[in-house]
Structure formats: C-alpha cells, structure tokens
Design a protein around this nucleic acid. Structure first.
Lengths: 212, 212, 212, 212
DNA sequence: GCCTAACCGAGACGGTACGTCACGTCTTTTA
DNA sequence: TAAAAGACGTGACGTACCGTCTCGGTTAGGC
C-alpha cells in the first residue's frame, strides 16, 4: 500500500530463514501514525496546518519513522484516505436500473460523508491539487468503481435493458457525472434522498416532449 | 476584484474634499505581478514552488506590495484565474439545443485549455483545495455560467423544446455533469470534438430501447 | 544645528532679494518632532523600537518631513540630546578647588539625571554605539566642557593653587575620570552627595604646591 | 556561557538513564559562527550591517542554528567579545604600586587593541547601548577585574603602602577612571607608553602613609 | 489677486532583516 | 537495525522599517 516499502536486504536474499536482519518495523507504529492523522482531522485541524512534524508529535513518533514509510505528506494522506474509504456496495443484481441506483446512491453517501464529517473533505481537496496523488487515488480507488459501473451497463445491453448502440463509456459519465458534480464541484448543491433514482430514471427515460 | 482593497475614499464617495490620500497604487505593478505568476506557470514551475517570495522576485516587486493587494497566495491565484478566464460564449439563439451545445462546447474548450497549457491546471487544482477560494471562484465565475445554462433550459421549456415538468436544476447537471467530470475529475478522459453534441443529443433523446 | 539643512535654491543664489522661494519650513513641525521623540522616551519606549516611522506617526508628520531635516535616526537623536542638555554651570571663581567641585558636581547631576529620568539614558547609549554621532556630540558638547575644566586648572597653576609642572591634560582626566566612570560605565556605582568634593580634595592633596 | 542553552539533562544529572536525547549540538558549528562574526568585523563590516542573516550566510549555517544558541544579536555579540577577551595579566607581586601599574597597563593595551583592530571597537559600543548585555558583560568580565584591583589596594593598606583610612572603592576609580576615560569615552585621547605609571604615581603621591 | 515653488500629510514602492516554522536529512542513544 | 529525539542547512512565511517616490492639498512670497 505504501509507496516507500523497500527494506534494506529485502530483495535477492538467498537464505530463507532470515529474510530481514535487525529490528523489524513495528506495525503498531504504522497504525498510530494513520490514526493520529485522522484524530487531528476530526478535531478540525485544517490540512494546511498538518505538518509531518505535527503528525510525528501527535503520534509520539520520530520524523524519520514516518519518512521511512512514506516519501512525503501526499503519500501519507493517500494511505489515510484509503484507510477511510467505505467498502464497495453489494449490487442486488435484480436489474441494470436497480444496480445503477445502488452504485449512484453509494456515490451520494460518499458525498454526504465528505460534507458532514469534514474528516476527508480537505484531504480530498488537497489530493486533487496534487496530480501525482490524485492519479494514484484515481487508479486504485475511483477507476475500479467506474469499471464496475461500466460493467453493469454492458450487462444491461446484453439483457436488453439498454440500447445496444449506446457508447457505455459516455453513458457512465451521463449517469455518474450529475452526481459527482453535486458531490465534488458544487459546494452549494443539495443531495435529496431520491436523487440517485431521479438521475437514473431521467437519463434512461429520454427528455424530449412526447410526440403530440 | 481583489480581496484586500481597503483604501480610504473608494468608489461612491460623495464628499469632494478627500477622495484618496497618499500615493495611489500602481496599476502597472498589479499587472506585472499577475503576469509574473502566469509566466512562471507557463515555464512549468509547479504550484508548490510558487512562493510569494518567488513571485515578488520575478515581478521585480517587494513582498509587501503583494500583501498590500492580496491577503495571501490563494487570493492572488484567484485573481490570476479570473484574469485568464476566457470570455463567455455568444449564444446563437436558434434553438435550445444549439445554445446548449455552444455552452457545453465552451466548457470543453476550457478543459482543453487547462490540460494543454498547464497554466491554469494547477492553479485550478490548488483553488479547489481551499474552500474559501473555491467558493469565491464559484460565486463569481462558475455560478453565473450555470445560471445562463439554466436560463436556456427555461426558455426551452417556454418554447416547447423541453418538457415542462422537468426539473431544470437537475437538468443542468445532467447536461454539464458529464462534461465537467471529463474536464475536471477524470485526468485520463478524452474530449472528442463532437462530445458536446453527443451529450446534449443523448440526454435529450432518451436512452430506453425503442418499443419493439 | 541640523545636519541636513540645505534648501533648494540655497547656495549660489546671486540675487539678494529672494534667497528662498516657496513655502518655508515650519518651525512648529520641527519642535513637534523633537518633543514627540522625548514623549516616547519618557513613556519608556526602548530606543530600539523608536523607528522613524513611529516618530512620524506620533508627531502626526510625514516621513519625508523628517528626512528633509535630518539624514537619519542618529542625527535626529543628536538634536534631541542637545535640546535636553542642561546649561553649563556658573563658576563661583573663588578658587580653583571650588570651581572644580562645581564642574564635577554638574557632571554628577548629569549622571543622576541619566539614571533617574531614563529619557536620555538610552539615547546616550545609542549615541555611543555610533562613532559618527558620538564624535559630533563630543565635539560640540563634551569637549567644550573639558576645555573649561582645563582652563580652570591652568588658572590654578597661575594662581599658585596647583604645581606648575603638572600636566593639566592628564590632570583633567584624573579629576573627571573617576566621576565619569561612575556615571557612564559602572551601572551599579553609587553617587553620594559629597563625591565631587572627595574626588577633588583627594587628587589635589598630593598636588598642592609645596609650602615654601 | 550562552544565554539560551536549555537542553535536557545538562550538567549535574545524577540519573544515568537519559542524560541527553537526540543529536547533540555541534561545537564546530558554534565555533564557526563566532569566528564568522570576527571575520566580518575584521573585514570592516559596520556593526549595523551585521544581521543574523548575514552571519548565518558567512558561517554557512542556518538561522535557526543561531537562534537555537543565542536569543538574539546582543547575546551572540556578548559571546564574541568574551571569546576575544585577552587573559588577565599576571601580577608581579613586588609591590602594590607595581601591581597597579601592571593592571592599568593591561587596561591600556585593551584600549589600544580596541582602537587598532576595530574588531571589537564596535561590538563594544553596541554592547554599551544595550543595558541588559552591558550588565552581563560587566558582571562576568569587568567586575572581576575591578575586584582584583581593589584587592591589590587592600593588600597595599595591610603592607603599609597605602594610608589605612583611604576608601579603596573610590581609590579604584581614582586609579582606573583616568585610563578608562581615555580608552572608552574620549575618541581623540592619546595613550602614551608611560601613561599607566604616571597615573599611578601621581595619584599615590598624595596618599602615601606619612613617614613616621 | 494670481503664479509658482516648496512644503506638508499620507502612503505606495523595492528592499532587507526580522524571528518562526516546516521541510527532509543527519547523528546521537537506547532497545 | 529500528526507534525517539532533536540538531542541521534550507527556504518561505508574514511583518516592520528603511529611505525614496508620488499623490492632492496648503502656504507663502513675487508679480
């Protein structure tokens, strides 16, 4: 998970009995660092004041111990976000429409979480400002979910729930775009309970006025 | 436009006696600061290395001169973005559909600009990471455009191009959401030339398979 | 008195009738600046915090108005000290011994003033740290007094109160040195009322001309 | 010696477990800072241009490293002066008169040093302008020497070289005052080779115990 | 009674230094 | 060899003054 995990004498060690020498890294230290960051964020400390120095002080840990595991602030935050990421929703599988609603509702829940708890709101924002980290987060967390959505759509095409000539890639954005805009870009947008259903149904239904 | 502009006797001062005291602020200095930031960004300097100190050095200006106008890095960047903002597109007015395509195409162009020139990509990202600045940007730049889109939709309803019972607020996100996701959130998405048309037409058309 | 007194059109003006043109400098401004400095010093503001900027603010005066009169902080302080300098004592003339006691007592009074009022203690100290200013102060204030002391001693030699072979220059330091050490160099020394008499009498004891 | 030296487990710590924690401060760095200041002073840099920033640059050291040891410019200069202080002279002990001449000659040498090398002249002046630092210098450097002088005088009284009823405290100033005035207060005074002898002999002339 | 030059307050301006903080690396002792 | 501790060089932070420079507005002669 970390980006800096190479231990001295790690690779290419022939002897099986003692792959690493010296004192092993403490997992407890690892946990206490990540939990320390979360504690600070929950206490409302703005991200700009979250220095490595302060994290080390809070976790009762030396700075070098942090740098031994992560190459910098961004990598550390990436792991913090990953640790706080809610599990993927279970799809009912009753229909494409229902599966899409469930996926979209999970996205809405995430948006609500970001807004209310403020734990991750800023970490998230910070991540977006760092292309390297945002790409890493995208690749390991966001993209898989998007792929799951695409897969649902493709299955819908096979089952006749969606026109076969539709570009599922664009379709994914048509479904998730409106929700993501409201959760991530428009700070003032509201997220009513039936939003997921309304988006899915509206997109699927067609919006032209009925032929008279 | 600036956030720090308390000077005695600003606009709308009835009294004739003492409109401004002391040497007035130089507009040339103001311009050279903003242009200095742009120059640095164009040269590929990462935003994290864009200190006020460096901006001052580049613009040949004292730090205090910057702090006299902006209360910090974020406020300065906000003005940089505003200065680089392209003008609003002119709507053809031939139909709701055409107007929407033009608006959406402008959004796509903005996305292309952000990606290619790298001038604003990072400033943008940075802005998103600061709620205060993002809200200010949203209120003065993004929201008006969104209102323009909503207005087009409402006119479409009056003219019978859009069903009268549709929630234009949600509709705005249905149209602009997919494009914004591709320009702002998905770093790997492509932006083909006909994307605006396809989004508008697909959303308006309806996606259910035709009754057999 | 000031070090920067050149007015434009000052020197080399042929015409006699109009030596200065334009609005003349206000003497009131001059006074209010010096009094402003004294007020601040009396309030206990340490000299290191006495910036030109603050002096200008206190006196309700523009900075340029100060720089028009003095070339810097040191020159200004020099004039402040000169303005606060007590008048030279009047010598009784009854005898060399009495004149010396009066001069030495004036020095003691000055030391007491410096210690108690704290007005000048620090200005004095600051002045000593600037060779240029200290020399100027020495030349215009201290040296004349020293010359007065030397003159008294010389008169004493003529009148037979002091041995004729004594080096009056060294003698001056023998008399004034002990007092100056206590007033200027030893912060903990006490200055009893009869100090001047004791110094003069002790030093003279061995230097009286031998009874013939 | 320094004024800022709070480190855990200093001297006199009985507990064996944790005498000092973390990387110890480098003595080499300490030396290079003080030597850097001296180098600059020798090059003729006026004291007013001796900023902490410049000292750090010269010594190849971070500003924080300086502030870790001294709380400001004055404290640093105090240590510089102490480092440059010549060793106390060795008293011959042949007589009170000879001892006094040796002590006074050391004072004269110090004055010559201050004048010629210019290393310390200004540091000295600066120190005098800061009561806190001057008092510290006085207490640790000047006062002990004065006490040594007083002790010599007292011994002279015991040995019959000085009248027993003389106030040795005042006597100290009578001897050292004239020399100090010439070395510290009068910038134009000369310091001839036989000055120490002449002062001592002149002052003692009247204070010898009466021949029985 | 005007003209005009210098004054005056205010404050912007390019600089420099302040003292603090965090960065990421390093050097200690202890485990 | 990991770990806590903290020193180290580096460099940005935001503030305060420096001495100079515009501004609009005042004050005095000289015309």
């Amino acid at each position: 998970m970390n980006l800096v995990e190479s231990r001295a004498g790690d690779a290419g060690d022939d002897r099986v009995g003692s792959p690493v020498r010296g004192r092993p890294r403490s997992e407890a230290v690892e946990r206490s660092i990540i939990e320390g960051v979360m504690k600070l964020l929950e206490e409302g400390v703005p991200l700009s004041e979250l220095s490595i120095e302060r994290v080390a002080r809070t976790a009762g840990v030396g700075k070098a111990t942090i740098y031994r595991r992560w190459s910098g602030k961004e990598e550390l935050f990436l792991d913090v976000v990953r640790a706080a990421e809610p599990p993927d929703p279970v799809l009912p599988g009753t229909s494409m429409r229902d599966d899409l609603v469930v996926l979209l509702e999970a996205t809405r829940q995430r948006g609500l979480l970001n807004r209310s708890s403020a734990i991750l709101h800023n970490v998230f924002a910070q991540m977006k400002s760092s292309p390297k980290i945002w790409n890493a987060y995208h690749a390991t967390v966001v993209a898989p979910r998007r792929r799951a959505g695409i897969e649902v759509l493709r299955r819908g095409q096979r089952d006749g729930e969606l026109r076969a000539d539709v570009d599922v890639d664009l379709m994914g954005d048509l479904i998730f775009g409106p929700m993501l805009v409201r959760t991530s870009l428009r700070p003032d947008a509201d997220l009513p309970e039936d939003l997921a259903e309304r988006i899915v149904d509206t997109v699927l239904e067609g919006l032209r006025p009925p032929a008279r």
